[in-house]
Design a protein around this nucleic acid. Sequence first.
RNA 1: GGCCCCGUCGUCUAGCGGUUAGGACAUCGGCCUCUCACGUCGGUAACACGGGUUCAAGUCCCGUCGGGGUCACCA
Length: 472
Amino acid sequence: MTEVRVRFAPSPTGYLHIGGARTALYNWLWARQTSGKLILRIEDTDRERSTQASVQAIVDSMTWLGMDWDEGPGKDAGTGPYFQTERLAIYQTYVDKLIAAGAAYRCYCTKEDLDRARTEHKARTGSEQGFRYPGTCRQRTDAPAGKHVIRLKAPATGSTHWHDLIKGRIEIGNDTLQDSVLMRSDGIPLYNLGAAVDDISMGITLVARGDDHVINTPQQILIYQALGVALPQFAHMPMILAPTGEKLSKRHAAVSVMDYRDQGFLPDGVLNYLARLGWSHGDQEIFTRTELVEKFDWEHCGDTSARYDLKKFQHVQASHLRMLSAAELAKQVVPFLDKRGLTVAADDPRLLTAAPLVQPRATTFIDAADALDYFFREPPVMDEKAKTKFLTADRLAQLGVLASVVEGVSPFSREPLEAAVKSWLERDHLELKDVAQPARVALTGRSASPGLFEVMEVLGRATTLARLRLQA
RNA sequence: GGCCCCGUCGUCUAGCGGUUAGGACAUCGGCCUCUCACGUCGGUAACACGGGUUCAAGUCCCGUCGGGGUCACCA
């Protein structure tokens, strides 16, 4: 069996968004499951729009998500370079082969020639749509010096088909093809040439990409055939749509991978959500990274486009947050605490004790940091509404009593604290719910928090007493 | 408009000729309870429509409608 070689080939024209991340993910999962190779290739032939910052954003996003590549920027394994603009000589040799094979030709038509033909087409049909290059240079056999592009000599009859791993058999009539430009006059390849040549020269065995590329596949197959090389497998995955059903774009909130990092999402949560958006494994919803690698398959990739749903995303994310150990959560939440001006060590015992408390109450690290805030801020930020509602004059005296009740409890931990408070309540014919809210507000500054005794335990005796007495 | 892809609860999906059409998110209600969560129990909710094929169709075929993609010296 030959080694699986898949690739992720983004164009560096912006940040990595979740659609691209999913394409990368499926390729990465397949490479890891099969012990194959993932090649990261930067398709930067659009010099107008490609930027170094975008390359960095892609690399950073992939790295943050933990999707490592075996060959690509920073990892040359002999099939590089991995930036298309550094592979120009390679494209030229392939173009020569294509011309020699009669599958491509030089076209000397100018921009003006084409504009004229396009205008005529529009006048005749009433639309710019459906315009096709008239084939002016198709038959010329000379090769004069001068500005020219390279065009594909597309067959006019027959059809091109392939078996798509996701969509099944796809057949497209060659009469719908046109002699599209393969290489610009400046020697820079266009998408179809660059992709096909690189996939060939990099030994790609499976091309998995978004299904907006279905229409490009026949032209690439034609190139493979003209060159006499074996076809790779193809898998075209449906696109991710906005909640409204339209194409997901930068206009939609939070589609950049880096945004999720900044919002305190877990890479594994992002991967899980993205994996399930278009792929399934029976009824299972939550997958660890390892499970994803083990269970992913092309067979269960759906062929319907999926809508992005933040609510579900958050649920998956929260599930992963809860899977973290206290030490892991502590370590990862520290930078987010720092952003709030709270300097806490990852191994601070209070943090370690508090972590499991906030875990079921948070979706992201930002949430967790917020839920942890009052444990480390002195005095805690007081919610005025909560204060007005619960710290009423008739309740304040109870706070003082509560303070004296817990003062001597030892050890100062949840069970003994609860026992002491419960026996006091029983003695004075009070109910916990009568004193809990005022105490909670005094201790945390908020009307919602983890259990009172857990909070006291984390705060410790001195802080607990101080905060209760400050209000009493 | 041509070509290509697609159509199961609001959303993500299971289903691969015979199911009370299952799960998850969301939503609604109950339980738990010191608040908020978590958890848990239960409810509402789907096979786009019309023809076929078949003893039997969400599953196969055709059409209609609907959605998306694509028609560049972008990728």
